[in-house]
């Protein structure tokens, strides 16, 4: 697996953990352990996203790389096999 895919799959794992904790916290809003886990996963996810977007371009349109061209539209999209 190449470096880009490895990094992306790490982000996917942290983001999934965040969503799962979000659902748990919706019905357990004062669970301090879940809150602590959410905070840790959020820091990890933000850190990895920063690295990914600097190297490989936007994960959301609200990230603007330091280039003269709009990179948001670039292939591959999530439903494409890598070699588009």
């Amino acid at each position: 697996m190449d470096e880009q895919t490895t990094l992306l799959e790490q982000i996917m794992a942290y983001d999934f953990a965040l969503y799962d904790l979000q659902l748990f916290l919706n019905t357990h809003p004062s669970d301090t352990n879940a809150l602590r886990d959410y905070k840790m996963a959020l820091e990890q996810s933000e850190n990895l996203r920063r690295q990914y977007q600097n190297r490989y371009g936007p994960l959301t349109a609200r990230y603007l790389p330091n280039t003269t061209c709009w990179q948001w539209i670039n292939d591959p999209w999530p439903w494409n096999n890598k070699e588009v």
Binding site: W72, W77, W79
Partner: peptide, 16 residues
């Protein structure tokens, strides 16, 4: 429809 769009401009437009 976005899944079968052939260009990056079309994929982005339909997605967004």
């Amino acid at each position: 429809q976005r899944f079968s769009m052939p260009t990056k401009e079309a994929k982005a437009t339909l997605n967004d």
